[in-house]
Design a protein around this nucleic acid. Structure first.
Length: 500
RNA sequence: GGCGCAUUCGUCUAGCGGCCUAGGACGCAUCCCUCUCAAGGAUGAGACCACGGGUUCGAAUCCCGUAUGCGCUACCA
């Protein structure tokens, strides 16, 4: 057995979590559970300007819905609490000051740059670098002047001017950079809050994190993190940089709000199953072998291996996600489980009450039958109400053209006669034969007895009469679900419709 | 612009020097099954392994260059 891993998901509370972000959380979770280790949640709320109320709840909801549980975190605590960075400020200041005392960092009395200044410097490394090092070798007189002016300093990291730094990484070729191209990053801001560079690193060290799994957008600043570890004299955890998720084929850039749903909650509302989303997301950039497509959470935990994460960013494909979802609905979920998942959607469409959705009680049996009617054809839970709404209406309420009942039959009269025969047949069908198989067999026999050229001539009007639409679930299954009385009623109403 | 990473069917991927005339999946097409729609089964089209150079008896697999894509370039994470 490999050593137990301790991993973390450390989002900042700036809104709902992005699906690309969540995927790294899933990878982290799987790595921890694969090694029988711990997965923790830490909130990086070090930027007060970007804080969005309700973010923590959104993050927790998303993880919970996906079945990703954490062993330590805000709310539940743990041996390394607190897990909110804003509650750990003293710690960061302490290490920043230690670095200053050791000559590895320094106070910098610069003014915060405006966005325009930053933009201008962005394409001009010389200017940027020079700006970041402005106070690196400032003399005492200059410092005193700044202090007298009341400038609140930041603490900047003193990056070595020479040499190169290499970032070890297990899925990407370890990047190597010239130290001279690295700017002296801010470690501690003038408001006493740490930057990400300091905070994540201090916490990961203190919390005994073994694997830092974060998006590839962190690759460029990773050398800085290596250098800061060295300055602090700490051993580095294993860094892993999975790629970002890209927009669907045809569109550029990383997966964006403009092009796709990017929040977990949106997929929930669209009718996706959490296990299907999880399955799809993991397979987007990771594979176990050359053939397996469907993985339960347990399978994933057993088989996950960080080293098999693809280094290349993958495009998000809604089609494959839909297929995965449909597969879970059709082949993984039991009928009752499927019905339970449909409940909120049925309530949303006012087919049942929200009380019934909460607590279906006895009604669940019936709803299981109803939903079971379309379990094999539906890809999204949200499609369900529209597919079975007729089951919640009376025969008289179905609205459709009489012509639809005819199908391949010669005439309206012929179809009407068939409906009459079927109604009569169903009325006298013995109870023990009144089930899907018995009904299907009985009606087939009836079509023979009526000397019909094929069964379709009989089943077509029956099907349409039962649900008022041309594409429908299995006719016999609908009859069983309706029950004898309602089924016969539908036959008779359809017949009247044809003769009217 | 600079720095970094990446590059196998339209898309997700298998492949880690000979098993590859490149395998699987989604999507697509055709057929079978069939009372419709699905589901299921079968078959097929689809990748000169980005391009150009090397290394090697032998390269999708190793090296270099080019192109392209992506990311970063804040007192944001």
């Amino acid at each position: 057995m490999t050593q137990k891993a301790r991993t973390r998901y450390a989002p900042s509370p700036t809104g709902k979590p992005h699906i690309g972000n969540i995927r790294t959380a899933i990878f982290s979770y799987l790595e921890a559970k694969h090694t029988d280790g711990e997965f923790l949640l830490r909130i990086e709320d070090t930027d007060r300007k970007r804080y969005v109320e309700g973010s923590l709840e959104a993050i927790e909801d998303s993880l919970r819905w996906l079945g990703i549980d954490w062993d330590e975190g805000p709310g539940i605590g743990g041996p390394y609490a607190p897990y909110m960075q804003s509650e750990r400020l003293d710690l960061y200041r302490q290490y920043a000051e230690q670095l200053v005392a050791e000559g590895k960092a320094y106070y910098s009395y610069d003014r915060e740059r405006t966005e325009e200044e930053r933009k201008a410097a962005e394409r001009n490394p010389e200017v940027s670098l020079a700006f970041s090092r402005r106070w690196r070798d400032a003399n005492e007189e200059e410092r005193q002047t700044a202090i007298a002016d009341g400038v609140k300093p930041v603490i900047r990291f003193k990056v070595p001017l020479e040499g190169t730094t290499t970032v070890p990484d297990i899925i990407v070729k370890p990047p190597t950079v010239q130290n001279s191209t690295l700017s002296d990053v801010v470690l501690l801001k003038s408001d006493d809050f740490p930057t990400y560079h300091l905070a994540h690193l201090v916490d990961d060290h203190l919390m005994n994190i073994t694997h830092v799994i974060r998006g590839q957008e962190w690759l460029p600043s990773a050398p800085l993190h290596v250098l800061i570890h060295q300055a602090l004299g700490w051993e580095m955890p294993i860094y892993v940089h999975p790629p970002v998720i890209l927009n669907p084929p045809g569109q550029k850039g990383k997966l964006s709000k403009r092009e796709s749903a990017v929040f977990v909650g949106q997929y929930r509302e669209l009718g996706y199953l959490p296990e299907a989303l999880l399955n799809y997301l993991v397979l987007l950039g990771w594979s176990y072998d050359d053939k397996t497509e469907i993985f339960s959470k347990q399978d994933l935990i057993e088989k996950f291996d960080l080293r098999r994460i693809q280094p290349t960013p993958a495009k998000f494909s809604l089609e494959k996600l839909e297929w995965t979802n449909g597969y879970y609905i059709n082949h993984v979920l039991t009928r009752e489980d499927f019905a339970r998942r449909c409940l909120p959607f049925l309530a949303e469409a006012s087919l049942i009450t929200s009380e019934e959705a909460e607590n279906p009680g006895e009604r669940l049996n019936y709803l299981t039958q109803v939903c079971g009617l379309i379990k094999d054809k539906v890809k999204l839970l949200s499609e369900v109400p529209g597919e079975i709404d007729f089951m919640f209406k009376s025969a008289a309420e179905l609205d459709y053209p009489a012509q639809d009942l005819v199908g391949k039959n010669e005439s309206k009269e012929a179809a009407a006669k068939i409906l009459e025969e079927c109604a009569a047949y169903l009325e006298k069908l013995p109870d023990e034969q009144f089930n899907t198989a018995g009904i299907a067999e009985g009606l087939s026999q009836l079509s023979n007895d009526l000397n019909l050229k094929n069964r379709g001539l009989l089943f077509w009007p029956v099907r349409v009469g039962l649900c008022g639409r041309k594409n429908s679930p299995d006719a016999a299954a609908m009859i069983e679900t309706y029950g004898r009385k309602a089924a016969v009623e539908h036959m008779r109403v359809a017949q009247q419709k044809l003769l009217a």
